[in-house]
Simulated scan of single mutants.
Amino acid sequence: MSCSKLPQLRDREDIVLRVENLLVTFEVGDKQIQAVSEVSFDVARGETLGLVGESGCGKSTVGRAIMQLPPPVGGRVLFDDQDLTELKGEQLRQTRTGLQMIFQDPISSLNPRRKVKEIIAEGLQIWKHADQAARVDEVMEAVGLDPETAGDRRPHQFSGGQCQRICIARSLALDPQVLICDEPVSALDVSVQAQILNLLEDMKQRYQLTMIFVAHNLAVVKNISDRVAVMYLGKLCEIGETNAVYSRPSHPYTRALLASIPEIDSRHDNAGGSIPLLQGELPSPASPPSGCRFRTRCPKASAICAEQEPLMRAVNAGAKDSDHFVACHFPIEPDENLTDPPSDSPEP
Rank of each mutant, 00 (worst) to 15 (best):
L6E: 14
Q8L: 14
Q8H: 14
R12W: 06
D14R: 06
R18D: 04
V19T: 11
E20T: 07
E20F: 07
L22I: 12
V24T: 15
Q32M: 08
A35G: 10
A44C: 04
G46C: 06
E47M: 05
L49T: 13
S55H: 02
G56F: 11
G58C: 00
S60H: 07
S60Y: 10
G63F: 10
R64Y: 11
I66T: 01
Q68E: 12
L69Q: 08
P71K: 00
V77T: 00
D80E: 07
D81N: 06
Q82R: 14
L84P: 11
L84Y: 00
T85R: 00
G89L: 10
E90L: 01
P106S: 04
P106E: 01
I107V: 14
I107S: 13
L110Q: 06
L110E: 03
R113S: 04
K117Y: 08
I119E: 03
A121L: 03
L124S: 03
W127H: 14
W127G: 03
W127F: 15
H129R: 13
D131E: 09
D131L: 05
D131P: 03
R135E: 14
R135N: 15
V136E: 03
D137V: 06
A142M: 11
G144Y: 14
P147V: 12
P147N: 12
P147R: 06
A150W: 15
G151P: 13
D152Q: 10
R153E: 12
R154P: 08
P155I: 00
P155V: 02
H156Y: 12
Q157S: 03
C163A: 05
R170T: 10
D175F: 14
D175S: 12
Q177N: 09
D189G: 00
L200C: 05
Y207E: 00
Y207A: 02
V220S: 05
N223C: 09
S225T: 10
D226V: 13
A229P: 06
V230F: 09
V230E: 07
M231P: 01
L233T: 09
G234E: 12
L236P: 11
E238D: 13
E238Q: 10
E238S: 06
I239E: 04
S247G: 04
R248M: 13
R267F: 11
R267D: 14
H268P: 07
N270Y: 07
G272Q: 09
L277F: 04
L278W: 08
Q279V: 06
G280D: 02
L282D: 04
L282E: 08
G291C: 06
R295I: 14
R297Q: 05
A301E: 00
E309S: 13
M312E: 00
M312S: 04
G318E: 14
S322H: 06
D323N: 04
D323Y: 01
F325W: 09
V326E: 01
C328P: 08
F330W: 08
I332H: 12
I332Y: 15
E333H: 10
E333I: 13
N337M: 11
D340K: 04
D340C: 00
D340H: 05
E347T: 12
